[in-house]
Design a protein around this nucleic acid. Structure first.
Length: 693
DNA sequence: GGCTACTGTCATCGT
DNA sequence: CTACGATGACAGTAG
């Protein structure tokens, strides 16, 4: 640790660090209460600025009165300046500064006591005089006086703290009657008296929507509790369907059909009409419009009456099911509801939580997706889950083994199969699950995978394959696109004896991994979707190549063909006899695979180069600005120098006298400086000659 | 339907 | 001459 104390400057008490930096060392303030600031290097390698009363400085510094003013990073220019150019006050001894008012990190600072040399004393004296010149008397620096001021200040501070304390207590008392809404951060008044019955008053209902977290956080909220919550007064805000999902997700609610039946129309209208302000009104309108548009746009109005929309199925925190029957009743009740409420059915899945989520893929994904059948499935699933009977797929594999331990509910949110918005989306989305949770496609009874697989649609020929490329539907019927991938993937792997098992597992792991990568939070469809997209393409590509390989009975996996080193590859090839077509295909596969990787690398490099160039550009721009500023400064100083030289010239010239004591005419004479530094008075005519020479 | 981003593929060049 | 990587150009796909 360096012990340095550098007398830098005296500044007014009011100056802050920035001002200090701006004004720089050596400047003086106008106000009273001048203090000497000593930058002291502390153990944290920072410069602490200490305020030291000037008065005692002439003799000894009373350390107890030294208070750190502020700490300046050592890297700051100011600190460097302080450490480099200033004279050190050498201390005969040092003392640990342990003033109670010191900041925590300053307690270890060693402030050297000044044992001023004559030089230092001179400097201090000069500073004193400057202060006096500025109208600051010595009394300003009187320690006793300052001590009094300090005491006064301290008292004021204490009083202020007491007031704050009082205020806090008042707030605390207030908050005991309030409840914190974790989502909105608002405090909600706690009303002790529970309502006698569930009201159909939309406002009350919508208020209850705000209890999302309260509801969601409790696994089994009693209906009484819920009713209590219902009657709590909230500011009316319904921003998205999540609110609906939250309140509907409560099992207790699910069991109350009256409540649910009372919902749709009155609620819709009521919500809009009772919205307390325009914004909320608008938001509500928009929310309902969006909900309605989903069905209207897709032309599924009629179907939607009986269909369950799970598009909002995005709440990750799902309480465990406590009473499946409640959910079942609830679901049934929902089937009779109007569209808007029909949309809100999805949340009941939240109740089922992760346990149900893992079973969801087995739900019938027919486009009709009738709620009854869904309920049946649901109930079956719940029962299965509850009775701990392992689900089995068509191949006899235990679903519990296949399914990831934790299937995030967001996986299902991806599953547009439950969206019900359109047939296409319906199917397509299901793939979101089927890819990552294969059992979806292999659920007993309605396994699309097995049906297609069994139908023998899995033909292989190059031409067929090309057809598949251009219009996959042609070959794989009207299966959901990703379903197809899944199907082909699965069936291919299962059918491909030549693919090493570890490779299969690797592939499948790779395919499954995005599911686990999916964010837990709902509503983040972008990232996983991107992954899904690339994933499906990857799958498609692999499938295509694998299919081609399979079609020509090539006994290697695409990965092997592509990734094997040349020698190994050649050795492998030499062990088999291939036809021309096979050889060509293997070459193509290898070339394509290599090129694919190369293209990926190439694009990556390209992007990196772009980023690098942008960085360089920024740097160059900064440098240019800097140079321009520097140029301006140089020009200014050059002008100043020229001016000074002109002045000097005139001054010297005007003092020159001829033999008669008369000044020389500037029209006839001029001063010239030779290279050796001598200055001559030269007649202007001669000057021309010199110039010619 | 046009735009954009992403990706795979092909052709070509250089090593 | 061949293999291979790099890269521009193009096409297909999906949002």
């Amino acid at each position: 640790m360096e012990d340095q104390a550098l007398p830098l400057l005296q500044v007014p008490h009011s100056w802050d660090q920035k001002e200090l930096q701006d004004r720089g060392r050596g400047q003086r303030g106008r106000h009273h209460s001048f203090l000497a600031l000593y930058p002291v290097r502390c153990r944290q390698a920072r410069w602490a600025w200490f305020r030291v009363p000037i008065g005692p400085l002439t003799d000894t510094i009373e350390l107890c009165s030294c208070r750190p003013e502020f700490a300046v990073s050592q890297r700051s220019g100011r600190s460097r300046e302080a450490s480099s150019g200033t004279r050190t006050l050498h201390s005969a001894h040092t003392a640990r500064h342990t003033h109670p008012g010191s900041r925590a990190n300053m307690t270890d600072i060693v402030l050297p006591l000044a044992q001023p040399t004559q030089q230092d004393m001179d400097l201090i004296d000069i500073l004193w005089k400057q202060d006096i010149d500025l109208g600051v008397g010595r009394e300003v620096f009187d320690y006793q006086q300052r001590q009094k001021e300090y005491e006064l200040e301290k008292q004021k501070k204490l009083e202020k703290e007491r007031l704050e304390q009082l205020q806090k207590e008042q707030e605390k008392a207030l908050y005991t009657h309030l409840q914190l809404d974790e989502e909105t951060g608002e405090f909600i008044p706690i009303q002790q008296a529970p309502p006698a019955e569930i009201t159909s008053d939309p406002q009350t209902l919508t208020r209850s929507l705000q209890t999302k977290d309260c509801l969601g956080s409790e696994t089994a909220l009693s209906s009484e509790d819920f009713l209590k919550l219902l009657t709590d007064a909230f500011p009316f805000v319904v921003e998205n369907e999540e609110y609906q999902s939250s309140w509907l997700s409560d099992p207790a609610l699910g069991g109350n059909q009256n409540f649910l039946y009372s919902g749709p129309n009155t609620e819709t209208g009521g919500l809009q009409s009772t919205a307390s302000n325009g914004d909320h009104d608008q938001e509500m309108d928009q929310a309902w419009e969006e909900l309605l548009s989903i069905t209207e746009l897709k032309g599924l109005n009629h179907e939607m009456n009986n269909m369950v929309d799970l598009s909002m199925y995005q709440t990750p925190e799902c309480p465990a099911v406590t009473d499946p029957a409640d959910n079942y009743n609830f679901l049934n009740s929902m089937s009779a509801m109007e569209k808007p409420v029909g949309h809100t059915v999805s949340p009941f899945l939240d109740d089922l939580g992760g346990s149900f989520a893992s079973s969801i893929p087995a739900v019938n994904t027919n486009t009709s997706f009738h709620v009854d059948s869904f309920c049946d499935n649901l109930l079956t699933l719940i029962d299965t889950k509850l009775t701990n009977v392992p689900l089995e797929d068509s191949s006899g594999q235990c679903l519990n083994e296949i399914l990831p331990d934790t299937v995030d509910i967001t996986d299902l949110s991806q599953c547009k199969a439950f969206n019900g918005s359109s047939t296409q989306e319906f199917n397509d989305s299901d793939s979101g699950i089927s890819i990552h949770t294969s059992p979806c496609g292999t659920s007993p009874g309605q396994s699309l995978t097995s049906s297609v697989y069994d139908d023998g649609q899995y033909g292989y020929s190059d031409s067929e394959m090309d057809d598949t490329d251009s219009s996959p539907e042609a070959v794989q019927h009207d299966l959901p696109e990703k379903y197809k991938y899944t199907i082909s993937e699965e069936s291919f792997f299962s059918l491909s004896p030549f693919i090493p098992q570890e490779m299969v597992s690797f592939e499948m792991d790779e395919l499954n991994s995005p599911a686990s990568d999916l964010p837990a939070s709902p509503g983040h469809a972008t990232t996983p979707f991107t992954k899904d997209k690339s994933l499906s393409r990857l799958e498609a590509r692999f499938t295509r190549d694998e299919q081609r390989a399979k079609a020509l009975n090539i006994p290697f996996s695409v990965d092997t063909i592509v990734n094997l080193p040349v020698d190994d590859f050649n050795a492998m090839m030499s062990k088999h006899e291939f036809s021309e077509a096979q050889l060509a295909l293997i070459r193509d596969i290898r070339r394509r695979g290599k090129n694919k990787v190369a293209a990926q690398n190439c694009r990556k490099r390209k992007m990196e180069n772009i980023v690098e160039l942008e960085t360089d550009l920024d740097q160059l721009k900064n440098e240019k600005d800097k140079l321009l500023a520097e140029k301006g400064e140089f020009n200014t100083s050059l002008l100043q120098l020229k001016k000074q030289i002109g002045t000097l010239y005139m001054e010297v010239f005007s003092k020159l006298r001829d033999e008669d004591g008369k000044p020389y005419s500037s029209n006839e004479y001029s001063l010239q400086q030779t290279k050796d530094g001598n200055v001559f008075l030269v007649p202007k005519a001669k000057k021309l000659e010199i110039k010619k020479e």
